[in-house]
């Protein structure tokens, strides 16, 4: 079971899905990658609430999919159910991605740094890794091609949130400041939703900053769970808003009745 959110009638996985959903703009055209239960739920939730025209390509293949349930793999063919088109990967999906037809990409990794760069390749030195991870897959590609990047993590600890990633598998704001822009890449990370808070990015330094704290979580708690310095807020930080009963009903009863989203918590 995932933890209850104090004072809210929901659990942490539900709060994260709802926060993710609300961060999606009405013109979102998105797809999902591996182990992306929270984004997949959020895309469907946003489509059922404030963003009816949102485009979601399930597993990057099933365009406008509406699966009756989210299968155990967010890249398996079961998630394509209800799609209006099954895209061919090299010619449809990659052309749409590089050609700017998609505008939103969400990814996570074993390490995320203060500028939103992500590592899913190795922990430690590349040639003598402590842990060899799966590899970036399409992360190195899509983080460069897609302007609106949404990060998330269900393990907010100093091991995940590091000052600098051991390997840059996915590009966020690089070294911060104008680094991304100077490389000719549009946009950059807009949010990072964790099990403790919602991060945004400082518009000038491109350094992660807290947008809102989940109920029951203090600034100090986030700070000590984060491996880089966070600016001390000048005024009290708001709480991550409470999900509405409609959002919770859709998520629990229609979108993800079997709780696939909880697979990201173990």
């Amino acid at each position: 079971m995932t933890a209850a959110v104090p004072g809210y009638e929901c659990t942490i996985d539900e709060l994260m899905v709802v926060a993710f959903s609300r961060a999606l703009l009405p013109d979102t055209r998105a797809f999902n990658g591996a182990v992306s239960f929270i984004p997949a739920c959020a895309f469907m939730l946003a489509r059922g609430t404030h963003a009816p025209n949102l485009v979601w390509s399930a597993g990057s293949i099933g365009i406008d999919a509406a699966p009756e349930e989210i299968p155990e793999s967010t890249l398996s063919d079961g998630i394509w159910q209800g799609a209006t088109m099954l895209a061919n990967s090299p010619f449809d999906f990659w052309a749409h991605a590089q050609g700017g037809r998609y505008n939103t990409f969400s990814f996570r990794g074993a390490q995320i740094d203060r500028h939103g760069n992500v590592n899913n390749t190795v922990i430690g030195a590349y040639d003598a890794p402590k842990v060899r991870l799966a590899g970036g897959g399409g992360m190195a590609d899509l983080s460069v091609m897609i302007p609106r990047i949404m990060l998330w993590s269900t393990t907010h600890t100093p091991r995940t949130f590091v000052r600098q990633v051991d390997f840059r598998s996915g590009f966020g704001y690089g070294d911060g400041g104008d680094d991304r822009e100077n490389r000719g890449m549009r946009g950059g990370p807009v949010v990072c939703i964790t099990n403790l808070c919602v991060f945004g990015f400082d518009p000038r330094t491109k350094h992660m900053k807290i947008n809102s704290l989940h109920p029951g979580v203090s600034f100090e708690a986030v700070s000590s769970a984060t491996g880089f310095d966070l600016a001390i807020p000048s005024s009290p930080l708001p709480n991550t808003p409470c999900p509405t009963s409609t959002e919770l009903r859709l998520l629990r009863e229609v979108i993800d009745p079997h709780g696939a989203r909880r697979r990201e918590f173990s």
Binding site: V35, S73, R132
Partner: peptide, 21 residues
Amino acid sequence: ITGLVSLEGFGLAQHFRRGVQ
């Protein structure tokens, strides 16, 4: 020669991982 080796939702590909490590 690859971009990613994993068993996706089922976890890491342990023999590949150990082989590289």
